[in-house]
């Protein structure tokens, strides 16, 4: 549940807007990098929570 709220927060205005402009990291546009990083992070956290709970 907390992850859901975190995800909603990270994937929406206004946090999203911070990364919506110009700029790049390692040659990858900032927005693209941000969204995919957060996405990967979220999946990792969900895996962690779920696998730990099922133990």
């Amino acid at each position: 549940m907390a992850l859901f709220l975190l995800g909603c927060l990270l994937f929406n205005y206004p946090l999203l807007s911070l990364f919506a402009g110009q700029g790049e990291i390692f040659g990858v546009p900032l927005l693209y990098a941000y969204v995919f990083t957060v996405w990967a992070l979220l999946i990792g956290l969900m895996a962690l929570v779920v696998e730990r709970r099922s133990d």
Binding site: M1, L3, F4, G7, C8, F11, L31, Y32, V35, W39, L42, I43, M46
Partner: peptide, 17 residues
């Protein structure tokens, strides 16, 4: 552009629920 992504971010968020 990146506007195609919500279609896949939504399910990711939903999966958390």
């Amino acid at each position: 552009g990146i506007g195609f992504l919500p279609i896949y971010l939504g399910p990711t968020l939903m999966a958390a629920l």
